[in-house]
Computed example of a mutant assay.
Amino acid sequence: MNLDRAVLALAGTITLLSALLATLVSPWWLLLTAFVGINLLQSSITGFCPAAIIFKALGLRSGCAFR
């Protein structure tokens, strides 16, 4: 798995978990989904992604999006 796939897998997992928690616990969990979406949009514009930095420090090899 490369860095790009790990970031997308993390974002997708958190989004699905947030939607599940919003259904079962409280609609306020949708704020987490919004945060993930805003972070993805921000990282597509600026190229800065905290998750990519963490995954890179853990030793994942770079992909095309995050270097």
Rank of each mutant, 00 (worst) to 15 (best):
M1P: 07
N2S: 03
N2W: 02
N2L: 01
L3K: 02
L3F: 03
D4I: 01
R5S: 10
R5W: 03
R5M: 08
R5D: 12
R5Y: 04
A6F: 01
L8T: 02
A9C: 07
A9F: 09
A9I: 03
A11D: 14
A11C: 11
G12V: 02
G12M: 05
T13I: 01
T13S: 12
T13N: 06
I14E: 11
T15F: 11
L16W: 07
L16V: 13
L16G: 15
L16E: 13
S18A: 15
S18D: 04
S18C: 09
A19S: 09
A19F: 15
A19D: 06
L20C: 13
L20W: 15
L21H: 05
L21M: 14
L21I: 04
L21S: 13
A22W: 06
T23A: 14
T23L: 14
T23V: 10
L24I: 14
L24C: 08
L24H: 10
L24R: 13
V25P: 01
S26E: 13
S26A: 14
S26M: 07
P27S: 06
P27Q: 07
W28Q: 11
W28V: 05
W29T: 02
W29C: 08
L30I: 11
L30Q: 11
L31C: 07
L32G: 09
L32Y: 02
T33H: 09
T33Q: 11
T33Y: 12
A34N: 05
A34H: 03
F35V: 13
F35R: 03
F35Y: 10
F35K: 03
F35I: 12
V36N: 05
V36L: 04
G37C: 11
I38W: 13
L40Q: 14
L40D: 07
L41P: 02
L41G: 13
Q42M: 10
S43E: 15
S44D: 12
S44I: 02
S44P: 01
I45K: 10
T46P: 06
G47P: 03
G47L: 08
F48I: 11
F48D: 12
C49G: 04
C49Y: 00
P50E: 02
A51M: 06
A51V: 02
A52Q: 01
A52V: 00
I53V: 14
I54R: 03
I54C: 05
F55M: 07
F55S: 01
A57Q: 11
A57I: 03
A57C: 04
L58C: 13
G59Q: 03
L60T: 01
L60K: 07
R61Y: 07
R61E: 15
R61D: 10
R61A: 13
S62T: 09
G63P: 05
G63F: 01
G63S: 04
C64K: 12
C64S: 11
C64F: 12
A65K: 15
F66Y: 15
F66R: 11
F66V: 00
R67W: 06
